[in-house]
Design a protein around this nucleic acid. Structure first.
Length: 261
DNA sequence: ATGACCGCGATGCGCGGA
């Protein structure tokens, strides 16, 4: 079985790329971030015609998350309990979808962690709070069912280790690498979840559109998969589809794929 | 070649992205 996460940077401009990816990768459950459209604007038909089930959550042209699944959808959760607001709005950054997998119910949370913008920006404190509240919610899920199959996947907007950026000097004084962000990311691993891709694959997952970042391989590793104990012990392989960054009309992120038995 | 930002909504630019 295969799950994947991909910050798509507008679903409407990349329907064909997503369909092609699903076909060649044989992913069963795909979590998307930055769909950049309202629910009524989401191009669901081409995916439904290809035999997939969808859950989408978008409020406007910003953010937006979705899950596309070969397995039937059993439950959909819009946002997580305690998800913080920004400017009095709970943004479309979290969607929990429970699907009927061959191994039983599997819950995939498609997560788009706030960017943070600058270290002195209110968005930065929002980001830290968002991650802290996610940790609390995740703790609750494991308390409710320690054996649950849960994947917390998405664009975490944190480069947890120095090797996850091409030049630490470039990031001095910037977001994504600051100790508080890294601590908030690591804290998800302190409540029973395991980041399962790092031991299995090495690559960046994001390259800025500007300044020839991709041809020069000046990227960042910021897309990750945290698995619950029951799921983590079944994970057998991971892949970062770097080729998806090539060519005209690529997202600036590439898919991160996890195989499990 | 993988190549010098992109997508959105609103209008001809500003915001957000990281």
């Amino acid at each position: 079985m295969r799950i994947a996460t991909w910050n798509i940077n507008s679903i409407r401009t990349r329907v064909d790329r997503v369909l092609a990816f699903l076909e060649r990768s044989e992913v069963d459950v795909l979590a998307l971030q930055e769909t950049k459209c309202r629910d009524d604007q989401f191009p669901t038909a081409p995916f439904e015609e290809a035999g997939y089930h969808l859950a989408v959550h978008g409020l406007n042209q910003w953010n937006g998350v979705a899950v596309i699944s070969k397995y039937p959808i059993l439950e959909v959760q819009i946002g997580f309990p305690g998800q913080p607001e920004f400017r009095e709005v709970v943004e479309a950054r979290a969607l929990g979808v429970t699907v009927d997998s061959p191994a039983g119910p599997l819950t995939v949370w498609s997560l788009y962690i706030p960017n943070g913008r600058e270290l002195d920006d209110p968005h930065y404190t929002y980001k830290l709070d968002w991650l802290a509240q996610l940790k609390s919610a995740a703790t609750g899920w494991l308390t409710t069912d320690p054996n649950a199959l849960i994947a917390l996947v998405g664009d975490w907007n944190v480069a947890p280790e120095d090797v996850d950026v091409w030049d630490m000097g470039f990031f001095e004084g910037k977001t994504h690498v600051s100790p508080p962000e890294r601590a908030a990311f690591a804290a998800i691993g302190e409540v029973g979840f395991t980041e399962v891709t790092r031991p299995l694959v090495t690559n960046y997952t994001y390259w800025d559109y500007q300044r020839l970042r991709f041809p020069k391989n000046e990227g960042m590793r910021i897309d990750f998969v945290y698995a619950s104990p029951a799921l983590a012990k079944r994970v057998s392989a991971a892949e970062i589809d770097r080729n998806e960054r090539k060519g005209k009309g690529a997202s600036d992120h590439v898919p991160v794929i996890v195989d499990w038995d």
